[in-house]
């Protein structure tokens, strides 16, 4: 066979089929069968009729939504102030805000835990607050960077035009700058919301024993219950699909990449 540039893609294509697509197929199979290999919807029905499981789903959404909102409220002003500032080395200054994410997250949460213990005495007193604080501390850089990137790329002439046409500073912000920074906000939200629904280690480390969706997978894994675990993974996958379609943009992935480096 003649070598072409196309054939370079074959190893990776095969890899993706084997280790990205196939695992999901097997996940589907395990979620809808029982131990004897018989087809069953029991795990599916079981999840949606179990008040504990539904409570977990609800709690995950609550933690994720509050965390995302807090991250957005803190990150937007940071990104906005930096992007609009006259500083020469803006991107270096942003680096300082983003740098903590290169320190292993479990060590950062350890540090946070020590500080929270000092402040609160007993961490068990404010489980929900600690969950949100921990997640926000962990994910904030992922919100700052995409928003900063989007605002920095905005054409300043648009704001000037709005001002020239008689808009005051507030109107210019709410009707020009904010709508135009939506793509950055969206990719920030998609990088914070899903981890906040699933990163149960942050809760564990801060002594919050309430389950979120990720913890369910963890506990079924520990109990060798592959079928129930697969169903939870599948439900999460469904949520991720809906969420990705909602925040829909191809750039989100590239942004997550860009945000990390």
């Amino acid at each position: 066979m003649k070598f072409t540039r196309k054939s370079l893609g074959i190893p990776y294509a095969v890899y993706l089929v084997l280790f990205v697509v196939l695992p999901l197929v097997v996940l589907f199979y395990y979620a809808f069968t029982d131990g004897t290999g018989r087809l069953t919807a029991a795990h599916f029905i079981g999840f949606f009729t179990d008040p504990n499981a539904l409570g977990t789903l609800f709690y995950s959404f609550a933690v994720a939504m509050v965390t995302t909102a807090v991250c957005l409220l803190l990150a937007y002003p940071v990104a906005y102030i930096l992007a609009m500032s006259p500083l020469k080395y803006k991107s270096s200054v942003v680096m300082v805000f983003v740098m903590p994410m290169w320190i292993n997250f479990s060590l950062r949460i350890t540090a946070l835990k020590e500080v929270l213990t000092l402040l609160e005495g007993n961490l068990a007193r404010f489980p929900f607050l600690n969950a949100v604080v921990g997640m926000t501390y962990d994910f904030l850089p992922f919100m700052i960077l995409p928003i900063f990137t989007t605002i920095s790329k905005l054409d300043g002439a648009l704001r000037e035009a709005a001002m020239d046409l008689g808009a005051d500073e507030k109107q210019t912000f709410f009707r020009v700058t904010l709508p135009l920074s939506m793509p950055g906000i969206m990719s920030g939200v998609s990088m914070v919301f899903l981890p906040a629904m699933t990163n149960y280690v942050v809760l564990d480390m801060l002594y919050n024993s309430t389950y979120i969706m990720g913890s369910l997978i963890g506990s079924y894994f520990a109990a060798y219950d592959w079928h129930s675990g697969s169903m939870i993974a599948l439900i999460l996958l469904g949520i991720i699909c809906v969420f990705t379609l909602l925040t829909d943009d191809e750039e989100a992935g590239a942004q997550r990449g860009g945000a990390l480096l």
Binding site: P23, L24, V26, L27, S190, L194, P195, M197, T198, N199, Y200, G214, I217, G218, F221, G229, S230, A233, L236, L237, I240, T244, A252, G253, R256, G257
Partner: peptide, 11 residues
Amino acid sequence: VVNADVVTGFS
């Protein structure tokens, strides 16, 4: 890229 790491690892 969009999947949760928990799901990737578990699958």
